[in-house]
Design a protein around this nucleic acid. Structure first.
Lengths: 140, 140
DNA sequence: AGTATTTTAATAATGATTTTCCGCAAATAT
DNA sequence: ATATTTGCGGAAAATCATTATTAAAATACT
């Protein structure tokens, strides 16, 4: 958490309460919130903050490598303060997005590089399904 | 190509020249065009057709299982008439999107299902990098 | 052929994200 | 300390992909 302070400063960005608050929301959740979810969560604490500020801050955090953008096929993006490359899974019923840790994916990049002669710079793995809770609800 | 004709009819959709044309564009390319690229390609042949028609036809084709939607992280979607589940790779310089056939991905779904208790219904693997042509250009 | 239904395509609407603009506060120079 | 510059937050407007609406045209069925 002090890390973001010095990182912002080093990159020439100012350290503001809004920026810290937005990062804090992302850092302490595993829910992969959208811009609007972040906005709604901060509304009570920062009643004057606008969505534009959320978007602008997200842009900065992405730029300095403190968050990654997830494109899980909804009409809006999700954000993750865990910048390690890891797969995600979305429940198509309740739209929750979960991490998939403990899954080995590193080997893929190599075989793709060999097969295509691309120079690989990134990868995103998304799974879709129905989460345990929604399965249960459906069996009611 | 006759397949789409009877499939449309069976599902209660009319068979129109525009729909066949849009599917034909998708079926004969491996470039994974966006709605706009399809529109531009058909413009000379169907000068009166609008982008809305492209979108609506895409919606229908998706519904009857003749195309899949790709979310490669651009601001618009790409479409692929190859509905087999296969990974894709996008060049971050020229934005071309290529297929990755010959890559084994099936095993993943099982291990994810075991690890999460999700019922898996789909998956999307995306790689990002620089294509051979753009690498060469860069070395100029 | 005549009528009912579906489709087309132009237009307008939507909604997430970006941009613009401006007063203000933090950082820097004097 | 004070003046000056620079970047920031926030409100509102702009953008742009996609979707909805609607009237006219095409098609199917009798």
């Amino acid at each position: 958490m002090e890390y973001i302070t010095s990182l912002l400063r080093d990159k020439g960005f100012k350290v503001t309460p809004q920026r810290l608050a937005i990062y804090k929301v992302l850092a302490r959740t595993k829910a992969h919130p959208s811009a609007e979810m972040i906005f709604n969560e901060l509304q009570p604490l920062y009643p004057t903050m606008s969505l534009a500020t959320v978007y602008k801050t997200i842009e900065i955090l992405k730029e300095i490598g403190l968050l990654q953008v997830l494109n899980v096929g909804e009409d809006s993006f999700r954000y993750d303060a865990n910048v390690e490359n890891h797969p995600h899974i979305r429940c198509m019923v309740c739209n929750r997005v979960d991490d998939l840790d403990n899954i080995e994916t590193a080997g893929f990049a190599d075989s793709v590089a060999k097969l295509t002669s691309y120079r690989i710079t990134g990868q995103q793995f998304y799974f879709y399904g129905i989460c345990p809770a929604c399965q249960k609800k459906n069996d009611k």
